[in-house]
Write a protein that binds this DNA or RNA. Structure first.
Lengths: 345, 345
DNA sequence: GTTAGCAGTCGTATGCTTTGAGTGCTAGAT
DNA sequence: ATCTAGCACTCAAAGCATACGACTGCTAAC
């Protein structure tokens, strides 16, 4: 793709900027008024015309202005997107979301999703994953009643997850103690991946605790995979604010969101890079005119999953990336020791 | 309100039935074709006219058929609503939802909400409440690391909830043991309400564990009130299936659902009766053309909260009530000993 | 009390016209 | 070579008039 002249770039940027604001086709006159005072609209028109030929602009119909093509968004992101500093108020809002000391992943993640959605004004999604790579610090087994126990899994990144399991044989306190000891001997310090594929020898040692062992493996399995309880969505109603969506797309959008697992796959496609911006590539799954921006998130140095924002193609990419980035940084610090030391962005 | 003649009743029922199916105004001819073969449409027209005068029917405009008024729905519910037996498949679906042995409230409740929404095809909401009236069976304190612990609350209805709390002083194992003993001495066997208003004497005894005590009270407080984590909503997208809602109402609806707390209040208004059906009474809160059916739910004999369905005024009340009722019965049995003994409705 | 018949109502669908925002082209100015 | 003013052309959207048809309500006869 050949290099654009400076003026062409400036005009293209103008179109994208205006379209992000208004969601209506941008005309040559509008560009002249708001971005140029030295050239006429006719000149801009001829430039627009060549930009259209190059595939960066689209005319909805002859007598309308232009809207950016997907390529235009991509170029815009490459060339013009800068991390804009967040407003003081926004940063405070993010900091405040994490004021209270941490209380289990669910709580943190829910708040993270909420604050991302609130500040960007788009729907946000967080998918927890990569549990496989995380090390188990300790597993605690707490007796609840004769037939059930609570398994508490503590990872070295400070993530705590727990789940009630059922046991067919009545549990004695002794059993619990033994089981606790054995399980920790086996599991602690290992990654989930390691635990999932144990040697036959270890398996034998566990004969007495087969049921318990299986239950724990099942929990680890479900936390690793894309599971309903690993997906957090906030701000579902936000996307209805954008005029490009009608009842039909609303329905589609909500249906996709209702089946969280499927949606999670979308978010997780970003495996390698820090940020991924996908525009209109997910038509197959009912998200036709959407762009998805995702980032990988860490907690205490370990990857814990992906956070994403979903909105119209003309979303405010600069803002979204800035917010995702700032929230990500804030999050990384939580496990260490609270966020008393406010840092600059 | 005077008694209606049998024929008037039959005609009114016909209008409601047809309107529930089609969501379009019902005409005299349609009623004749589908429900009468002995009287003419003209006769039905004159009956419709008097029913309109009596306030049961509404004409959207002169040359349209009639739609039921709120009063008509109420009469319909009183007079004609019967618990229709669910289909075999539906019952199986409900039973299967609870096949796995229970694993904490969240899990059960989420599934309950899901199955209600799936079978009725309306949005479902469950609000946990009444924790105040529930007795604490045991509270367990599990050390996680130096600065945090997991509080596990087990109630006599088998509900298990837990939360991570932070502690400013490093915890020793001894401390945990002592605290555990003391807390249980104090709390177990009491209702949450009793715990919340402790005698001054008890408070003194707790001096050493003030911080811990406060944390636990805070947890109980939050579980009692209508809190984000006490509200479960499923099937948000379902309501877009109904033609009476446009983009505007969709937006309102979703916004209300996004602020779960507010929504919970609506559901909880039903305090005294087993079922409550409210039609169009919640206009103030953005739910203009909605009806809400709620039921109080028990787990192991104790009230745990309210389950509700929200949909258009013309919702299939019989079906909804039947489903809520059957799910409720199924739920009651879970804590006892699984659901192996399938019972008839 | 019931019914057939018919006039009257009003929402909806359809097609036509007007309007105006925007473009593309061209000829002349810079 | 560029740029620009001017003008013809296009096309969606808005407005308007007409026709249609699904109803009702009324009346007169059964």
């Amino acid at each position: 793709m050949e290099k654009l002249s400076d003026r062409k770039e400036k005009i293209l940027k103008a179109v994208v900027d205006e379209y992000i604001k208004s969601a209506t086709p941008v005309s040559s006159g509008e560009i002249k008024d708001k971005h140029f005072n030295n050239i006429s609209s006719a000149t801009i028109r001829s430039e627009l015309s060549t930009l259209e030929d190059m595939g960066y602009l689209i005319k909805p119909h002859t007598s309308a202005g232009r809207i950016p093509s997907k390529d235009a968004y991509k170029l815009y992101i490459d060339r013009f997107m800068v991390k804009i500093p967040l407003k003081q108020k926004e940063m405070e809002l993010i900091q405040n979301s994490f004021k209270e000391r941490f209380e289990g992943v669910e709580e943190i993640v829910r708040r993270t999703a909420k604050v991302i959605s609130d500040i960007t004004n788009y729907t946000s999604v967080i998918v927890l994953s990569n549990i496989n790579k995380v090390k188990i610090k300790e597993i605690k087994l707490v007796e609840l009643d004769e037939h059930s126990a609570l398994v508490i899994i503590i990872t070295d990144s400070g993530i705590i997850r727990d789940k009630v399991i059922a046991l067919s044989n009545p549990m004695s306190t002794v059993y619990v103690k033994d089981a606790n000891a054995l399980i920790n001997k086996m599991f602690s310090g290992k990654t989930v991946a390691e635990i999932k594929s144990p040697d036959a020898i270890i398996k034998k040692e566990l004969a007495d605790f087969k049921e318990l062992y299986d239950s724990i493996i099942a929990i680890l399995e479900s936390y690793g995979g894309t599971n309903d309880s690993n997906v957090f969505i906030e701000g579902t109603s936000k996307f209805l604010d954008y005029p490009e969506y009608d009842l039909d797309s609303a329905k589609k959008f909500l249906t996709v969101l209702d089946t969280k697992e499927k949606f999670a796959e979308l978010i997780e496609q970003n495996q390698d890079i820090e940020f991924s911006i996908r525009i209109g590539k997910d038509e197959s799954c009912g998200l036709e005119k959407c762009a998805i921006v995702t980032a990988r998130y860490k907690l205490n140095g370990k990857e814990i999953g992906h956070a994403g924002v979903i909105g119209p193609e003309r979303m405010d990419y600069s803002k979204v990336v800035s917010v995702l980035s700032y929230v990500g940084k804030t999050l990384e610090k939580i496990a260490d020791g609270g966020n008393d030391d406010k840092e600059k962005q």
